[in-house]
Structures are given as C-alpha cells and as structure tokens.
Amino acid sequence: MAITAAMPTAKERPRRTRTKRVSTRPALKLSKLPPSHIDLLNPLQATLVCEDCGTWCPITGINCKVQKVVPHHTGKAHVADAIHCRGSNRRIDWDLTIPEWRQALTDAITEASSRTATTVLPRPFSPQTNRTLQARAERTAAGRAADWKVALARVADADKARRTVPAGDAPAEARSVPTDHLTVQRLAS
C-alpha cells in the first residue's frame, strides 16, 4: 500500500444522514440565533448556519425525537482539507415556533432596511465656491493665457527680489561676529 503526501479533501455528503451519534456540546437554541441564520420556509427541509464554520447545514430528524445538525466538513467539497466541523451532530432545541421565527425575521428585515441610507443628496455650495466655479466656467483660453502672463511676471519679480543680497555684511542692530580663534583653556588650580 503506497503512502501519499496529499491531504484528503472534503467530499460531498448525503443531505440527510441517519446516525445515532450526538454531539456532547449543549443543544443549540434557535431563539439564540439571528433569524436570518435560520431557514424554516419549508419545515421539512429546515436549514441553519453552523455557529462554528458559518456554512448552511440541513437539520436532520425533523420527524424524530432528536433533531440534529447534519455532519459536515469545514471546507468546500473537493477543494479544502477534510476537517470535521465541531458543530456536526449537535442537538437542536426548538424553542421557537415557525410564526415566531417569521415575525422575528420580518422585524429584522424592517430594522435593517431602516438603517440603510436612502438617497445621498449633494451638499450645497457656499456662495464663494459657487462664484469661483462660475468664474472658471466663463473663462476662455485667451483669458487663461493672459492670467498666466501676469502670474509669470509676478513670479519673475519675486525670484529677482530673492536673489538680491542686502547691503553690508551684517545687520545694523546686531552684534558683530567674532573673527579671532577661540580656544578652550583650563584654569590653573
């Protein structure tokens, strides 16, 4: 028998498994789950989202005494590693009737729809911004070229003023800079 290094991959499982195994974890109460994580539209094919791995799993044993989450893997079929989910075979406590679930789902949908934004209205411009935008829209290519000529002349004047060196080597009101070499001398003790 040859040993391969490949990990086994998850395989398709039958939708309804009949097993006597039951998880040792406490029963899953339907009232504790969000109503959007339960699907009871067709009670004979009820499904819910597994708390551990987040996948939709059918509920087995609807007509029996014990209802459980179907055994399942955490990964996708034929893609991920075959790791058995901890939420498999977990008992389900039906503390929620179908009309109660339907009402809770309707309330959750209403609440979620009230949180979503309706229409985003553009913010009105201030009068100054409005004037600026109108002035830009009214400008022509010739007007922009004339504005650039004026700006370039101002830039040239500013550069010329920066290059000029003030008269004299020191500011008028400042002390003069010492020119003789300073050395550190120790006092004789």
Score class of each variant (00 low, 15 high):
1 M>Q: 09
2 A>V: 00
3 I>N: 10
4 T>K: 07
6 A>V: 13
7 M>V: 14
7 M>G: 09
8 P>F: 05
8 P>C: 02
13 R>L: 15
15 R>G: 07
19 T>N: 01
23 S>I: 00
24 T>P: 10
27 A>L: 04
28 L>W: 05
29 K>V: 06
33 L>A: 02
34 P>I: 01
38 I>G: 03
40 L>T: 03
40 L>W: 07
42 N>S: 05
44 L>W: 09
45 Q>W: 02
48 L>S: 05
55 T>I: 05
56 W>H: 05
56 W>C: 05
60 T>L: 04
61 G>S: 00
62 I>E: 04
62 I>D: 00
63 N>I: 00
63 N>F: 02
68 K>S: 04
70 V>L: 01
72 H>W: 05
76 K>G: 08
76 K>E: 14
77 A>E: 13
82 A>H: 05
84 H>V: 10
90 R>K: 04
90 R>Q: 05
91 R>M: 13
93 D>P: 07
94 W>L: 00
96 L>C: 02
98 I>T: 06
99 P>I: 00
99 P>N: 01
99 P>Q: 02
105 L>S: 01
108 A>M: 04
110 T>F: 10
111 E>Y: 13
111 E>P: 05
111 E>K: 13
112 A>E: 14
125 F>I: 00
125 F>M: 08
126 S>E: 01
126 S>Q: 00
127 P>W: 03
127 P>Y: 05
128 Q>L: 07
130 N>Y: 11
133 L>N: 02
133 L>S: 02
134 Q>S: 12
134 Q>W: 13
135 A>F: 10
136 R>Q: 14
137 A>D: 11
137 A>N: 08
137 A>R: 14
138 E>K: 13
138 E>H: 09
139 R>P: 02
139 R>H: 03
141 A>H: 01
142 A>P: 00
142 A>C: 00
147 D>N: 12
148 W>S: 11
150 V>E: 12
150 V>K: 12
151 A>K: 08
152 L>M: 12
154 R>D: 15
155 V>I: 13
155 V>Y: 11
157 D>A: 08
157 D>P: 03
158 A>K: 01
159 D>I: 14
162 R>A: 10
162 R>L: 06
164 T>H: 07
166 P>C: 02
166 P>V: 04
166 P>K: 04
167 A>K: 10
169 D>E: 13
169 D>V: 10
171 P>E: 04
172 A>F: 15
175 R>V: 06
177 V>G: 07
179 T>Y: 11
182 L>G: 06
184 V>A: 05
185 Q>C: 01
187 L>V: 12
188 A>Y: 12
